[in-house]
């Protein structure tokens, strides 16, 4: 039986670590990009970002001052038991978010969309966002905390209903145009992690795009060969735009491009794009059935098709 206060502690710790550390795979990919870029401005964008993150890791600030939307992705197994029921996860997420905000690891950024009123806590209808999935026959909880920055979410979210006759050409045209648009003047803070959702209903399509951007180790190819090939083709095309870090002249507009699929209507071809920015903030906390918490910057293994 996993207790609510353990979940809250794990969520707080994951969100705190996400706010002050670059995930190891993201940092490695940024260093590769720095080695590759030749324009002085492109290199400065990367060098400054890496040093800025090092300051945050040393307790002097945040990886980025815009801590954005507080998101929690939670995966439970079929044998997971939560004291007080699964609703305790939502209560824990709210408490963890409020505490991280009080401790200045999260900026109070969530406001009412119409009045623009800001309670100062990052709490309110729908926030923090908790996405609960059931997968596998485990008895623990896998939590991924994501402070999802505004730049990538505001300027890097696109959806289009294509039709079967638009086919793969339509998908490619849409995705590459979204990347060009999002990278203009560094809006989505490139080098971006680009998530692409193909298929599903409209809401599922966008969820796939978001999870492709946030929940996959960088560059890990999709298990299906045709999808992995499309990922690679789009990534190579993005490198030919002439855009680099923060929209400067360069090569690394995109550091990874991940596609996720779902079955869709025989008349439809929905496509969604959601970008994550260069700091790619996320941190994981795994809770076992005994209530022990293990935090890491490396994501839990991909859900297999059998569990999906």
């Amino acid at each position: 039986m996993i207790r609510g206060e353990v979940i809250e502690a794990a969520m707080y710790e994951a969100m705190h670590q996400a706010a002050v550390h670059l995930p190891p795979d993201v940092e490695a990919r940024l260093r590769m990009a720095l080695a590759e870029e030749s324009e002085p401005l492109a290199r400065e964008h990367l060098r400054v970002s890496l040093e800025n993150a090092a300051l945050a890791a040393a307790g002097r600030g945040l990886v980025c001052g815009d801590t954005g939307f507080p998101l929690f992705f939670v995966r439970a197994g079929s044998r997971t038991a939560v004291d007080g029921g699964f609703g305790a996860i939502r209560t824990a997420a709210a408490a963890a978010t409020a505490r991280a905000t009080r401790d200045s690891f999260l900026r109070p950024t969530m406001v009412d969309p119409l009045t623009r009123g800001n309670p100062g806590t990052n709490l309110g209808p729908g926030m923090p966002k908790v996405e609960l999935q059931f997968a596998g026959d485990g008895d623990g909880l896998d939590i991924v905390a994501v402070p999802k920055g505004g730049g990538s979410e505001i300027f890097g979210t696109f959806y289009r209903m294509l039709y079967p006759a638009d086919g793969e050409k339509g998908i490619k045209r849409f995705v590459i145009d979204c990347i060009r648009d999002g990278c203009y003047a560094g809006k989505i803070c490139p080098p971006a992690i680009v998530g692409v959702g193909i298929g599903g209903s409209s809401d599922l399509c966008m969820k796939l795009a978001k999870e492709a951007a946030l929940l996959r180790q960088l560059g890990e190819p999709h298990p299906r060969a045709d999808v992995a090939h499309l990922e690679q083709e789009l990534l190579l095309a993005a490198r030919s735009l002439g855009l680099g870090p923060m929209g400067s002249r360069g090569v690394n507009a995109v550091m990874a491009l991940h596609i996720e699929l779902a079955m869709t209507h025989t008349a439809a071809l929905p496509v969604a794009v959601n970008a994550q920015c260069l700091v790619g903030r996320r941190w994981c906390a795994a809770i076992d059935a005994g209530g022990r918490i293990a935090c890491t910057g490396t994501l839990p293994p991909r859900e297999t098709e059998a569990h999906a």
Partner: peptide
């Protein structure tokens, strides 16, 4: 400059300059 690169990027993806959505 990006506009100058775009036709080549589309061609790399097998898209002609005149390709349009339905």
């Amino acid at each position: 400059e990006v506009g100058q690169h775009l036709p080549g990027v589309y061609a790399q993806l097998g898209l002609g300059a005149d390709w349009e959505y339905t």
